[in-house]
C-alpha cells in the first residue's frame, strides 16, 4: 500500500473531507492503486527538466487600476446559506484558525 490509513485521514483533514470508517479501506485501496500506476513516472530521469506550470507564452498580463462597479449587495449575498445583516454566518470557530 502506497498510502496508509493514517495518510488517508491526514489528507482528508487537509481537504476538509470526512472519511467514514466504512469507506476508509476502499479509499485506501483505490488511491494506493492509482499511486502505484503513477509510479510509472519514476522510469523517467527528470533531474534536468524544467517544470511546466502554464502553457501560455504570455507574461505580465495586468489591468489598469480602475474601479469597477461591485455587485449590488442583494446579489452578493443571495446565495448565502445563512445571512445576517448583510454578512455570511458561520458556526463557532474552535481553534485559532486562519493563517
Amino acid at each position: 500500500m502506497l498510502l496508509s490509513k493514517e495518510d488517508v485521514l491526514h489528507v482528508a483533514n487537509l481537504a476538509r473531507l470526512s472519511v467514514e470508517p466504512s469507506e476508509l479501506q476502499e479509499i485506501q485501496d483505490t488511491l494506493s492503486r492509482v499511486l502505484e500506476y503513477i509510479d510509472l513516472l519514476n522510469e523517467l530521469d527528470t533531474e534536468q527538466v524544467v517544470p511546466t506550470s502554464q502553457v501560455v507564452e504570455q507574461h505580465t498580463v495586468w489591468r489598469s487600476d480602475q474601479v469597477e462597479k461591485s455587485l449590488p449587495i442583494a446579489l452578493a449575498i443571495q446565495n448565502g446559506p445563512q445571512v445576517v445583516t448583510g454578512m455570511f454566518v458561520v458556526p463557532k470557530i474552535l481553534d485559532g484558525g486562519g493563517q
Binding site: R16, N79, P91, L94, G97
Partner: peptide, 24 residues
C-alpha cells in the same frame, strides 16, 4: 465550496465540522 457564501451547507455545531459535513 465550503458552505459559507453559496451552495449546499450541512449544519454542524462548529466550523470544522460544518466544512467536513458540507464537503463530504
Amino acid at each position: 465550496y465550503d458552505g459559507v457564501r453559496y451552495g449546499f451547507r450541512e449544519a454542524a455545531p462548529d466550523l470544522i465540522q460544518m466544512y467536513a459535513n458540507t464537503r463530504s
